[in-house]
Write a protein that binds this DNA or RNA. Sequence first.
DNA 1: TTGTACGCGTTATCAA
DNA 2: TTGATAACGCGTACAA
Lengths: 359, 359
Amino acid sequence: MTEGPTITTIAQRAGLSIASVSRVLNGLPTREDTVRRVMRAADELGYVPNSVARSLRNRRTHQIAFALSDIGNPVYVAMVREIQAVLKAAGYRLLLHSTEGDPEDEVCVLRGLRERYVDGLIISPLRGVGAEHIEAVTTARVPVVVVGPVPEGTPVDNVRGDSRTGVLLAMNHLHGLGRRRIGLLNGPLGTAPGAARAAAYREALELLGLPYDENLVEVGDFTRDRGARAARALLARAPGLDALMCASDLIALGALDVLREQGRDVPRDVAVVGMDDTDLASVAWPSLTSVSLGWAERGRAAARLLLDRLRDGSLPPRVVTVEPGLMVRCSTGGGPATAFATRARARVRALALAGGDRP
Amino acid sequence: MTEGPTITTIAQRAGLSIASVSRVLNGLPTREDTVRRVMRAADELGYVPNSVARSLRNRRTHQIAFALSDIGNPVYVAMVREIQAVLKAAGYRLLLHSTEGDPEDEVCVLRGLRERYVDGLIISPLRGVGAEHIEAVTTARVPVVVVGPVPEGTPVDNVRGDSRTGVLLAMNHLHGLGRRRIGLLNGPLGTAPGAARAAAYREALELLGLPYDENLVEVGDFTRDRGARAARALLARAPGLDALMCASDLIALGALDVLREQGRDVPRDVAVVGMDDTDLASVAWPSLTSVSLGWAERGRAAARLLLDRLRDGSLPPRVVTVEPGLMVRCSTGGGPATAFATRARARVRALALAGGDRP
DNA sequence: TTGTACGCGTTATCAA
DNA sequence: TTGATAACGCGTACAA
């Protein structure tokens, strides 16, 4: 808790000016002897630069914030890990903001950026970037990268998943297993992922030549409890279904609970597919086939985008789309031992099926 | 990306001195009229204070760092969430440092504190605070709270779990179910939790009047894979065991995999208990009875300890011990519906058994 | 090569 | 009540 030496202290001790000290410390060309004197004094005093003062001068804090909707959501864990790794390697520190999914809070974070305590922000709003964000994002005084969908044409660095292709992948897989009455357990249609998945589901049915039956669709929430409730409702209404496409792993876990409770065998009677491919998918029993939306990869991409922009602010806004994959596990017939990923291959098939790449 | 107005800009526009502006902005007593002029100018200019400059002056950044061993470890997720909530409410931001379990890296973080970019640190080293940390901890220029065991007598705020009581709780539970050949699947003895759990296991056996049999103990790692491997080895050596005490949920999940693979029914043939009570425990099938070491609570406690100290640096170092509990689920015979927590009650029993409270 | 002096944006002290 | 001014610790033109 000592008061801590500054370059002034060092200068006094070494009998030099603070300018010389600063130069040595920053590795600027200096006479050999001076270097030694400064280093010696710094060493003896246990000098450590004050990063706040430095930031004030440099206008760089070497800190980057990540605003996420909910720390408890496992999809974010993978993202945080990757982001942190990339940033750390580049000499940045990671600040975390958990907004609990409150859009107002998210806007607050964006506004707070103007306080200049970070050099940049990665934000991943659960419900997508709405009108209320957009102004804050585009007028922010530091670079912002959005993970998730943004309105068409928004001039901002953006990393997106492709749940449409993900759903096509999964539906194609189920169809290939001979399933024909495939139910959808979706999240709220008001959220970006909910809407996208609903549309992709319909599209897939069409492509597969299956009829759309609204009795096979139930909307709930992205949680396990609500997923279970939705599954119960759906199974009551459509007892004959032979597969469930779930809009998240948590929903799928809820569905598994209900199926087990009703004595229906998974995957024999009903095959189940989740989305997000979180840790939970491999832990569940039966282990869950799940669409991998590439969360980890998205985290990495977002961090890289941001670092690039910090190096060169004049870059045009870029959009990175991460390819989805399908992790096949027991809940659709794959074994835990035989769990395998189909990414490129399955994707090709699904896209051929879909007739083109339009994420 | 404008250059951003400062109090100087405001002062000019309002025809006042920067001192007056600062006073108004900080709510110090000022003439009504002046207040209005300043507020108006600030508003029109869209002024936002520069938190870096403020920090330089105040020597407070309103940032707190949390150094953890591995973001991917689910026990930390709960902690991060709670810490963030407490800090946010108190007006602090949370910085994350993932050290990947590297003690050297942890020391680096501690050293980095001297750069003054945070007001305090919460650190939770997986292997406990060793000799290499201790100097760094005690000489850090900002308050540090350690979550996890520290050498006796270290003058530092400290939050600890009580895995000893936790193990006693679990062993007592298993004994109560009639299990007599209870195996231990432990993590490395070189880690603090590993050592503590090994000791507690022996102690429990003694208290329960059961013999210690080294053939019933296998040491691996805290991961699922290594847990599975350890389980396989243990089951080969001691096929007759009727219960498994696992030093972490991940180990327990690995054990469940192996038991399923060998066709042994859980809990009928072998009852399984995990530790940490992570989300995974309730997702697994059969759902996993697990010792709750109170990670969320520990996070809260750590944050509070730190905030207290920031308010008053002269407080004596405090130690908070969080009580463990037992979440009984299917893997020892409880149902998912009947899952219940025994904390106080079971604790009392276990302690009566243990003959006193000595965490 | 080295030193002087100023600015980064605030807050706080002291006169006026 | 207000204004001039000095820090906070660092980096860097510019002058010596």
